Amino acid sequence: MNLCWDEVIKNYSNKKRFYYNLNHLQHMFNELQEVEDFIESIDSIRLAVFYHDLIYKVTSTENEEQSSEAFEKRI
């Protein structure tokens, strides 16, 4: 689990990220908290939130796909 956490912190803390950063993750989890009682597999959703924007390169159109691939490797 530490590998996942380290990967998330490293990528979302990148100084080149102006929006998809740790503040963005906090916002996502604040929103999720409002509905988590209605979600059966909340831990799966939380993990997906951590990885949804893991890869972010401004000029790339494949960020979501690459983030998804990274998520698949970890699960």
Rank of each mutant, 00 (worst) to 15 (best):
E34R: 13
Q66T: 05
R46F: 00
V35D: 06
F71A: 08
E31G: 07
T61W: 06
H52W: 03
I39G: 12
Y19N: 08
Y19V: 05
Y12K: 04
L3Y: 10
E31T: 12
D43A: 08
W5P: 00
L3P: 01
Q26C: 06
N11R: 13
S13C: 10
Q66I: 06
R17F: 09
E64H: 08
F38E: 10
S68T: 12
D53S: 11
Y12M: 06
S44M: 05
D6V: 03
T59Q: 11
V35F: 15
E7Y: 06
E62T: 15
F18M: 09
R46M: 03
M28G: 00
S44C: 07
E72N: 10
V49M: 12
I42F: 07
H52I: 00
R17C: 08
E65D: 02
I9K: 13
A48W: 01
S68R: 11
L32F: 15
R74T: 05
K15Y: 07
Y19W: 07
E34M: 09
F38L: 14
Y12G: 00
V58T: 13
L3Q: 11
Y19S: 07
V58L: 10
E31H: 07
I75R: 10
Y56P: 02
L32W: 02
N2E: 12
N63F: 12
H52M: 12
I42R: 15
M1G: 05
N21A: 06
M1H: 04
Q66Y: 03
N63S: 10
I45K: 05
I42E: 14
F71I: 01
D53F: 04
R17P: 10
R74W: 04
E72I: 08
I9D: 11
E72L: 13
I42S: 15
T59S: 12
T59P: 00
E72K: 12
Q26E: 09
H27D: 10
I39W: 08
F38Y: 14
V35H: 15
E7K: 11
R17G: 03
H52Q: 11
T59I: 07
R17Q: 11
L54D: 01
D43M: 03
Y56R: 04
T59W: 03
E64D: 07
M1P: 03
S41V: 01
E62M: 11
I75H: 05
